[in-house]
Each structure stands twice: as structure tokens, then as C-alpha cells.
């Protein structure tokens, strides 16, 4: 009897976590769809087939790199050039992954390894601001559901873009370009309201990023430096609240 009750509770906790993960992932879905559609359109124009451009979303799952990749394919860059540029642009995900995995210590490697593949700027930003779930029972399911929501939106959007071509008016797709920035802002502001020094960390990172771009650094590296050096201020700023 008790074991059945316990099993039921476990099951409902799993469902609860999955549901919560999907709900938390909805803003990413909203932000991804227009961008993925744009990628699909662009990739199609650069001469990729529908299979190729969708496969790229399935296997790479990194917005900025895919835009760049499609562009470079269009201008006839070599495979090596494209792959190296992708590495440089995505190196920031190493830093993000390290930060995220450090929070996920309570979760086993059997979950952590596959989860790491779903890390993008957006899934990282959202999940890093939900660190409590990592300590809850079935917390891994929360992140899995969140990441899969984002992943499937991305794939679906790319495919759609490849099929639709240019039917979406420029004005609409341009307006949608603000979506992910608005999401980042919508994630950052509540954290700043809770703890003001977090805003200082973000502003420092912005300034360092802008400075790096000013001195002619590529945008991928500029974000890496902005994140690492800006985050360094946390060594001092977050000192007091060790729990």
C-alpha cells in the first residue's frame, strides 16, 4: 500500500517537473520560432536543401553559428573555415556549461551529459535562473523538458522557414528580432529586483563586451570576454551570500 502511494507520488512529481519545464520553456519557444524561421529562409537562399538545413538544426542547435554557417556556405567558404568559425563563436558555451554543471552537482552524469548538449545562450539563461530545481526530486526532468521544448521549437521553426521561403513580411520578421533580447531582459530584471548587485555584474559584462567590439574583436569572443571578465566581479560581489 505505502509503496504504491510512494510510487504514485514519485510519478506525480515527475509529471509536475515536466510540466513546469515546458511552461518555463515557453518564452524560449516564442523567441526561437521567428528566428528559426528566418534561419530556414536564409539557409534555403544560400543553397542548402530542406533536409540539410533541418539536419543542421538537429545536430548543431546553435542559432548564431547556424546563421553564420549558412552565410559562409552561401559565399563559398571552405569547410575548415566554417568549422573553426563555429568553434570560436560557440566557445562561450563552454563557460556557460561549466557554470550550469557546477549547479547540477546533485544530478548524475547520466543526465548531465545529455543535458549539456541542449545548452544554448537561451536555455542556459533560463535554466541558470532556476537553480532550485536542481536540488529537487526529479529536477533533471525539469531541465530536460525545458531543453526539449526549446530544441523542438528550433527544429520546427527551421523546417518551417525552409518550406515557407519568403512569405513572411520583412516588417514582421524584423520586429521579431527583438524577441530574444526582450527575453534576456525579462530574465535579468526580476533578478536585479531581488538583488541589486546582480545588475552591476550584468552592466560590467555589457561594457566589457562593447569595449571588446570597439577594439575590433569578433562578436563571439567579445561575448566570451564580457561573460568571463564581467562574471569575475562576482568573486567579490557575491562573496557574502554563500549558503
Amino acid at each position: 500500500m505505502t509503496t504504491k502511494a510512494a510510487a504514485d507520488q514519485k510519478k506525480s512529481q515527475s509529471i509536475h517537473m515536466i510540466r513546469k519545464g515546458i511552461t518555463t520553456g515557453l518564452p524560449i519557444m516564442l523567441g526561437y520560432l521567428p528566428i528559426a524561421v528566418t534561419y530556414g529562409v536564409l539557409a534555403k537562399q544560400s543553397g542548402m536543401t530542406l533536409t540539410e538545413l533541418t539536419l543542421m538544426s538537429v545536430l548543431v542547435f546553435a542559432g548564431a553559428s547556424q546563421f553564420m554557417g549558412a552565410n559562409m556556405i552561401a559565399v563559398g567558404a571552405s569547410a575548415m573555415e566554417i568549422i573553426i568559425a563555429t568553434f570560436v563563436l560557440n566557445f562561450r558555451q563552454f563557460v556557460m556549461s561549466l557554470s550550469f554543471m557546477n549547479r547540477l552537482r546533485d544530478i548524475g552524469l547520466n543526465w548531465k551529459a545529455p543535458l549539456s548538449l541542449g545548452l544554448t545562450d537561451e536555455t542556459f539563461a533560463v535554466s541558470a535562473l532556476h537553480p532550485k530545481e536542481a536540488k529537487r526530486e526529479k529536477g533533471a526532468l525539469f531541465y530536460t523538458a525545458l531543453f526539449l521544448t526549446a530544441y523542438f521549437s528550433w527544429i520546427f521553426g527551421s523546417f518551417l522557414g525552409g518550406v515557407l521561403g519568403e512569405v513572411i513580411p520583412d516588417k514582421v520578421s524584423q520586429s521579431m528580432g527583438i524577441a530574444l533580447y526582450a527575453m534576456f531582459i525579462g530574465l535579468l530584471i526580476p533578478s536585479i529586483k531581488k538583488e541589486h548587485k546582480v545588475g552591476l555584474i550584468a552592466i560590467l559584462a555589457m561594457l566589457i563586451n562593447a569595449l571588446c567590439i570597439q577594439i575590433g574583436m569578433g562578436s563571439g569572443w567579445a561575448i566570451v570576454f564580457g561573460t568571463i571578465l564581467g562574471g569575475m566581479s562576482g568573486i567579490h560581489l557575491l562573496k557574502e551570500d554563500r549558503t
Partner: peptide, 19 residues
């Protein structure tokens, strides 16, 4: 740990501006 815990906020900042 403090450094790594600050990374999400720094990353958000760097992703928002100047992009």
C-alpha cells in the same frame, strides 16, 4: 563558485548589449 554563479548574469548582460 562565486565566479561561476555570477556567469549567468554576466552572460545575460553580454548577450543583451550591444547586440
Amino acid at each position: 563558485n562565486n565566479w561561476l554563479n555570477a556567469i549567468p548574469y554576466a552572460a545575460l548582460g553580454a548577450l543583451i548589449f550591444p547586440g
